[in-house]
Structures are given as C-alpha cells and as structure tokens.
Design a protein around this nucleic acid. Structure first.
Ligand code: FAD
Length: 474
DNA sequence: TGCGTTTTTGG
DNA sequence: CAAAAACGC
C-alpha cells in the first residue's frame, strides 16, 4: 500500500473534463499527487433552480470523469452538502487528511459562485494553502477587453473588434493532456457511490439524447465541423434542421472548452478568425457572444441581482399574470411555433436559438410578462442552463440589456414561423393536433380540435408594448 | 437578428 | 398598380 498524500486538490465544478482544463493541468504538472473533489451543493442547486435534467447530466458526467481521472491516478471524491458553507470545513478535512498544499480551480463568474470561491480562498490562504484560479470558461479572460478609457464595452460589435485583435495574438491551442500522477493508496469511488450522492434520480432518461462525457462532446464537435459548420451562416436559423452544433450542454457543464471549439473551427478555416468561410466566421461570432455575456457578468455584477442593464427599463409595467405565464410554460398559447418550442424545451432540455428568441420576445413583448420569470423558468428546464448566456439572452429579448434588441424591433412569432419553419415540420414534430393542417395556414391555424386559440392579440399587444416603452424616459 | 405602414418608382 | 424603398417605432 502506497501512502496517501496529495500535494494538490482540484475542485471540479462546471469543468468536467480532463483535456484543456487549466486547473487540472497546473495541479498535475508537479506529479506529486492530485486529488479531485466535486461538491453537490443542494442549497446552490435550489437557489439557482437548476434543472433536474442538468443535475442528472452532472451525475452521468461524474461517472465518466471518475474513469478518466483514474487513468491519471487521480482519485475523485464526491461530497453532497446541504449548505454552501459546509464546503470550507469539508475541504479542510481533505487538506488535513492528505497533507494538501494547494487548491486549483477554474473561475466561475456569477455572484454566488464568485463569493463562495472568494470565501474559500480567503479562508484557506489563512492556513498557508495556495489557491490558484484559472480561466477556462472563456476564450479571452474577463477584464482583458477594454476600451480606450479602460472601461468594459457595452456594445457587442466594439467588444468583438477588440476581442478579435487580441485573439489574433493568441495561440488558441488547447493544453496537452495533464500529467499522470504517482500511484496512490486511496480507495476509488464506485459508480454506485456516486449515484448515491444524488438525492433523487431524474425519471426521464436523456442519456440517448445527451450522452455524457468529453469523448461525446469531442465527437459532436468533430461531426459539426465536418458536416454543418460551413453552412452554419444559413442553416442555423431553421429549427427543424440540425444546423447548429448542439454543444451548449457540453460547454455549460464544461465537458468541452470554448478554446477546443475555436481551435477546431480555425483548423477548418485555414486559421482565419474573421475571414474565409462565412459559416465558420459566423460560428466563431457566436463563441464571441458567449465570451461577451460571461464578461458582462463580471463587469456588471448587478445582473446577478435581478437588475436590468438599462436602468430606465426597470420602470416598465411588467405583468405577472399566472395563467398567461403557465400557458406559455406549458406550450398552450395557441401560437404554434411558440408552443412547439416550449414543448421542445420540456421534452429535451434544449431549445433552438431562433426559438429561444421567439418565445422570449413573445413572453416579454406580447404577454408583457417580466423577463425574470422567463429567465427563471428556462433555468428549471435547460440542460445547458448558464447564468450569463441565459440572462444575456433574456435581457436582449426584453430590450433591457446592454446592446439588446431595440424595444420597437419586436418579432412577430407567426412571421418568424413562416420564415424559419415554412413547411411546418418543426411545429408538427411537437403538436400532433396540427398534423393534418396544411403548411400554408399551420403558422396561424383555423380552429382545430385539440388546439387552442391564441391567448393574446399579437398586433394589439405589440402596439401597446412599443407605446409603453416609448413612454419610459431614458 | 423586425414589422407595419407610407411613399416613391417604373411602367 | 405592384414592387421596392423609406420611415418610424
Ligand atoms: C432567451 C435566451 C436564453 C438563452 N439561454 C442560454 C443558456 O442558458 N445557456 C446557453 O448556453 N445559451 C443560452 N442561450 C444562447 C443560445 O440560444 C444557445 O447557446 C444555443 O441555442 C445553443 O445551441 P448550440 O450549442 O447548437 O449553439 P451553436 O449555434 O452551435 O453555437 C455554439 C456555442 O456558442 C454559444 N452561443 C451561441 N449563441 C449564443 C448566444 N446568443 N449567447 C451566448 N452564447 C451563445 C453556445 O455556447 C453554443 O453552444 C440563450 C439565448 C436566448 C435568446
């Protein structure tokens, strides 16, 4: 039996992968023993209304991660806690038990996670423990993209210009495989023990739709680059096609890094970031949007406290009508594209980006319901739920965000449906009651058995919303 | 990655 | 008069 001593702990969170994981990579460099830990913190999961499909996705990822880490001689410890404050004593216990000297983690930006990590770091540093924080969730770390006055950008196009300039100077290469550690004597956690840490197991089995693990994520990235990225600029708008990567669950949970994504995209575009194939550059543009919203959370932490980015929009008279809201959640608005999209979300834990914009605009601009209610409901359902991207998407749709859709630029869900689901194939996928309705009228169907009439007048509510926004003084 | 309405254009 | 352009929100 080899003595169990680990020089470093890697605390895994939304970075459940071995490759291109800077915290793990750095901890492993010295090859003096690494212990991996994952906390299932029920207080945090509940406060953040984490979707049950997401929790199950975490569980399935931990099973994979455990195997992958074992090959590097890194044991994984999975600890379930009721309260966030239990994490510090739990870490201290591990530190004492294994004579640990350093804690390595990848940064998380939303305020609760940020504060938690700061408290942990402050506390451990008092005990002479080295705490090293890396940035893996973004391609360019927060704080790096600044205008001439040293301030963060509020407009995406300006952010993007600066981002591209800096990106050109970076290698954008994923890290090499982390070093294998010396053999250790600690017992390795079993699948059953990992499963046992999860209070209730998700009933729905989404393991076919969303298989867990970084191998699966890498496979999907490869397939997307091979089959779809070159037509992404045109294909991404049609919800019935597989025109997008569907990598968001993997990026959110961190079984793939954005740097691995951009490296693969560059490889398919002769290394060009913003020239060459339009599909590739458009996709890179989405990865930059992703960085932008992560940076917004760091630079404007008020967004984590239910605040609108544009202060004057706080005065908008949002409605809180329970029955209209429930109809939206349950896909019973009588607007086929909205209903089909909401059922896709419920069924699969994912929704096409075009449809996220359509349903978010419908909730905020036609039903005039507070965007925060939609934001919250999305988090309860999404397998790819990410605070920054979700808040950014909602504030964009509600016209409360920085560089949001202007308040008067309101989508008409029926015209969106006609443009992007012209033959109604996506609608029919989720609304069997409309199976026989012809394409010409399916977007706004005549009274049909088993399908309800619209719960709101699109034209009237649009006019009203524009007037209400117009009356706000900015 | 907006829509609805009005005005202009070319015949 | 239909289509395109322009305009305001
Ligand atoms: C109201 C609303 C809520 C959203 N909530 C989330 C969320 O909780 N989590 C989430 O990851 N995305 C969210 N998005 C952004 C976007 O809809 C999804 O990232 C995208 O649909 C995921 O599909 P994909 O992986 O096939 O994307 P692709 O089109 O293949 O794009 C590649 C990656 O880029 C990132 N990305 C793409 N578009 C955006 C965007 N607009 N903003 C930020 N990142 C983007 C994602 O990580 C995505 O996986 C939201 C958008 C809206 C309008």
């Amino acid at each position: 039996m080899v003595a169990s001593r680990f020089k470093h702990i890697v605390w895994f969170r939304n970075d459940l992968r071995i490759y291109d994981n800077p915290a793990l990579f750095r901890a492993a460099e010295e090859q003096e023993g690494v212990l991996a830990v994952y906390f299932i913190c029920h207080e945090m999961l509940e406060n953040h209304v984490t979707a049950s499909v997401r929790i199950d996705f975490i569980r399935r990822h931990l099973l994979q991660l455990n195997n992958d880490l074992a090959e590097l001689n890194i044991p994984l410890v999975v600890i379930s806690t009721d309260k966030t404050k239990e994490i510090i004593p739990q870490l201290k216990k591990l530190i004492d038990k294994y004579q640990v000297e350093g804690l390595f983690l990848n940064a998380e930006y939303p305020i609760d996670e940020f504060n938690r990590d700061k408290q942990v770091a402050d506390e451990l540093r008092k005990q002479e423990i080295v705490v090293k924080r890396s940035h893996d969730r973004v391609i360019i770390p927060p704080g790096m993209i600044r205008n001439g006055k040293g301030e963060p950008y509020k407009v995406f196009t300006a952010f993007k210009k600066n981002w591209l300039q800096q990106a050109r100077a970076l290698a954008l290469e994923p890290l090499k495989k982390p070093k294998t550690q010396p053999p250790h004597g600690a017992t390795v956690i079993t699948d059953a023990e990992i499963n046992k840490q999860f209070k209730t197991l998700e009933q729905r089995d989404l393991s076919k739709l969303w298989p867990a693990g970084e191998k699966e994520a890498a496979k999907r990235l490869k397939a997307f680059i091979k089959n779809h990225i070159h037509d992404y600029d045109t294909g991404r708008d049609f919800p019935d096609l597989d025109g997008t990567s569907q990598l968001s669950p993997y990026l959110a949970i961190g079984s793939i890094s954005p740097r691995q994504c951009i490296a693969a995209a560059l490889h398919a575009n002769r290394g060009e970031l913003d020239s060459g194939n339009a599909g590739v550059t458009t996709w890179i543009g989405e990865l930059i949007w992703r960085d932008f919203y992560q940076h917004v959370v760091v630079d404007f932490p008020d967004v984590c406290k239910y605040k609108a980015m544009q202060k004057h929009t706080e005065a908008f008279p949002w409605r809180y009508d329970k029955s209209l809201f429930n109809a939206w959640c349950d896909g019973e608005t009588g607007i086929p594209i909205v209903d089909a999209a909401m059922l896709q979300l419920k069924d699969t834990g994912w929704m096409h980006n075009r449809l996220r914009m359509v349903v978010a605009m419908f909730l905020t601009k036609n039903l005039q319901i507070d965007w925060r209610m939609g934001e919250r409901y999305f988090m309860t359902q999404l397998i790819d739920g990410d605070f920054a991207a979700n808040n950014g998407g909602w504030q964009w749709s509600a016209s409360t965000g920085t560089d949001a859709a202007p308040y008067f630029r309101i989508f008409n869900p029926v015209s969106q449906s006609q443009r992007f689901d012209a033959d109604g194939a996506f609608i029919r996928r989720y609304l069997p009651a409309l199976a026989k309705v012809p394409a010409k009228v399916i977007h706004s169907p005549p009274p049909t058995p088993g399908y309800s009439l619209p719960i709101v007048d699109l034209s009237l509510s649009r006019k009203e919303t524009i007037a209400l926004f117009g009356a706000l003084k900015s």
